[in-house]
Design a protein around this nucleic acid. Structure first.
Lengths: 236, 236
DNA sequence: CTCGTAATGCGACTAGAGTCGCATTACGAT
DNA sequence: ATCGTAATGCGACTCTAGTCGCATTACGAG
């Protein structure tokens, strides 16, 4: 479980949550890498409630006081770990069909968070990040980056003429993934592959109906009814 | 961790703190009421991170040890407060049109959580509840109740012939509200009235298209099956 | 190589969360 | 009214998160 290669090997020499260090040199970088690694391991094993600065200190070999000085506490540790994770790229599907692309995306989200092997870490990370202001800020940045990136799927659909011009790509992505995150982190209801599909289909449907164009104002018009598009029936 | 069976014990099926107790009499009831009130006040004022058993003890006039005995800790306090809040009825719209009904619902959610007067309490409550297993269980119950109740708007739509038979009402409600909760509690992105409307419209559209009927089987084939598990969770 | 300085290591100290055993109170039944 | 018992009050105790001042290390510049 060597995350160091990914997280630290290519670690950008900035990002200490506090101040940009006048000494970004070797040691500080190593310390940060070790700490991030240890934090991820700890939060995965014990969850947020079990996350302790002292445990991270022990595991990373970095002194407790140093952790408090640089990260301020568990909040900062989690936020930094999340920030470090946010850099990693996310595979973007390109099937040539919006609905398929969205399905891939929601399926990806679904499998990442439910996979017994991979799931616990991102799940714990996000849960943990929700708890503090610093973590919340990191979360916002995290999702903003994801949405910005994934919006391309919708933008390609616009280019293909599949979606109306002016469609807000990020909004489409949010609509597709929101039901999943809602279940995972808010209502706590079980999440299955079917829900992931439905969410993607619903988002695609709404996008095609033009609900996500930014410069749009409707009221009670023909509403959404007139469009039972050629969309294939619900995945089910 | 372990709540006395008096509360949410896992031992017996029925455990609402207020349900059957060996001594449901006056004092215990008063104590619980005082504690719930104090908990709500504290969590509203200080947020979850500032929530302390000792502060609740002082404010409610109930001894700290009693709080630990009956509620187990802050987790239990929050969970109980949430449970107590869940009982309160939620206004159900009935405009005769699904889309309008859903808009009312999302608008309601929107205003409750963003209202500077009312918002902080439910927001803090839900945020707090997310943090522990006990709280999460209470949250699930809370949302399950809400969904069950709100599903009626979809069921009426089915009766009217506006939606296909077999539509899962709760699912429609979830689809409508998920984007709001997602923004509020997961991504932390700003929430506005327009988003609330769009979410309702999108859900209505998808429902009409028959995406939320429960008894059906897949038609799109292997679309979802193949998924390159190449995410970026920091684990490995 | 030497030196100045930032970063880390170190251990003691404080404060507050959470626990425990026992005394006291008040409910509910007789 | 009386009594048995559950629930609460009470205070001392433990344990650990978090802080502080100072010693030590290692980076980076000359």
């Amino acid at each position: 479980m060597r995350l160091e290669s990914t997280l630290t090997g290519a670690t950008h020499p900035e990002q200490p949550p506090h101040a940009r260090a006048p000494r970004p040199g070797g040691r500080s970088a190593r310390v940060r890498a070790d700490v991030v690694t240890a934090t991820l391991a700890e939060v995965t094993e014990k969850g947020y409630d079990g996350l302790t600065v002292e445990a991270v200190a022990t595991r990373s070999g970095v002194h407790k006081a140093t952790l408090y000085r640089r990260w301020g506490g568990v909040d900062g540790l989690v936020a930094d770990a999340l920030t470090a994770s946010a850099d990693q790229p996310w595979p973007l599907p390109d099937t040539g069909d919006l609905r398929q692309d969205l399905r891939r995306i929601t399926q990806e989200v679904f499998s990442v968070f439910t996979d017994p092997e991979l799931g616990p870490t991102p799940t714990a990370l996000i849960s943990a990040a929700q708890r503090s202001d610093t973590g919340a800020a990191a979360l916002r940045a995290f999702f903003a980056a994801r949405h910005r990136q994934a919006a391309e799927v919708a933008e390609r659909a616009v280019t293909r003429g599949e979606l109306p011009a002016g469609t807000d790509g990020a909004e489409v992505v949010r609509a597709a993934t929101a039901p999943l995150y809602y279940r995972l982190f808010v209502s706590g209801e079980p999440l299955d592959a079917r829900t992931a599909e439905r969410a993607a289909d619903a988002a695609a449907l709404a996008a095609r109906a033009g609900l996500f164009t930014s410069a749009e104002e409707d009221s009670a018009g023909p509403a959404t009814a007139a469009t039972p598009p050629t969309l294939a029936p619900p995945a089910t």
